[in-house]
């Protein structure tokens, strides 16, 4: 995807740009609201990643100015202020998504993908990763043709992992998706649920499909 990153912090901006480039996206990085605004008008981007706290023309102003002009490029807003008020204000001003700093990098990738995917037609009702198949219509899951009996929670978990197959999905993303809950306690609830899912889809098969990525989350991958 063609991305525009508007972020004033040098260290953070550089890290994000490098991460996005490594994830296979093209990313232009500017460090002020004015430059971001000009570039957004003169070039076509798939998604704009916009920090709210910028010197000079701040992010909210840029966002409003672009939307007032009828500019329709999806915008993902980044901010250190995570209050509900802030979030509501950002979304009302025309942001497509919202991410509070600090965030896990995979979450940014996943959200950008989600925004990109929203532009595309709906995926088919049957998904597969390697030899694992998931049917969204009859809610059945099978591996190597062998039917697996999953609870509703396990099914949702697998479906979400499958949506981001090959990418890292963070615990926070899973928690929010499954229970709309932002659990950040010390108890690793997601790990317990992942282990139960593993017990059903990986146990008895020679190759595990769910990988743990230390400190980041989990990844469902059919590749070796």
């Amino acid at each position: 995807m063609e991305l525009l990153l508007v972020e004033d912090d040098a260290v953070f901006g550089k890290a994000i740009q490098r991460g996005l480039l490594e994830a296979g996206h093209h990313c232009d990085w500017v460090r002020s609201g004015e430059n971001g605004f000009d570039l957004a008008r003169s070039h076509r981007f798939d998604v704009i990643v916009l920090d709210l706290m910028l010197p000079g023309m701040n992010g909210m102003t840029v966002l409003k100015a672009l939307r007032d002009m009828g500019h329709r490029t999806p915008i993902l807003v980044l901010t250190a202020l995570g209050t509900v008020d802030e979030r509501v204000a950002g979304l009302n001003a025309g942001a497509d998504d919202y991410l509070v700093k600090p965030f896990a990098f995979p979450e940014l990738i996943a959200r950008l993908d989600a925004i990109g995917r929203r532009m595309q037609p709906r995926p088919s009702s049957v998904n597969s990763v390697g030899e694992l198949e998931l049917n969204l219509t009859n809610r059945r899951v099978s591996r190597q043709g062998k039917e697996l009996d999953l609870t509703p929670t396990e099914f949702s978990l697998l479906e979400y992992l499958m949506r981001f197959a090959g990418q890292v999905v963070t615990r926070k993303m899973l928690c929010e998706h499954l229970w709309e809950s932002n659990w950040d306690g010390a108890t690793n609830i997601i790990e317990v649920h992942i282990n139960r899912l593993r017990g059903k889809i990986d146990k008895g098969f020679d190759r595990p499909l769910i990988q743990t990525v230390r400190g980041r989350g989990y990844c469902l991958s059919g590749e070796r």
């Binding site: 929670t153 928690c175 229970w179 709309e180 609830i189 139960r196």
Partner: peptide
């Protein structure tokens, strides 16, 4: 939901 979450 919470019970589902912590049940495991």
């Amino acid at each position: 939901k919470a019970v589902d979450m912590f049940g495991a």
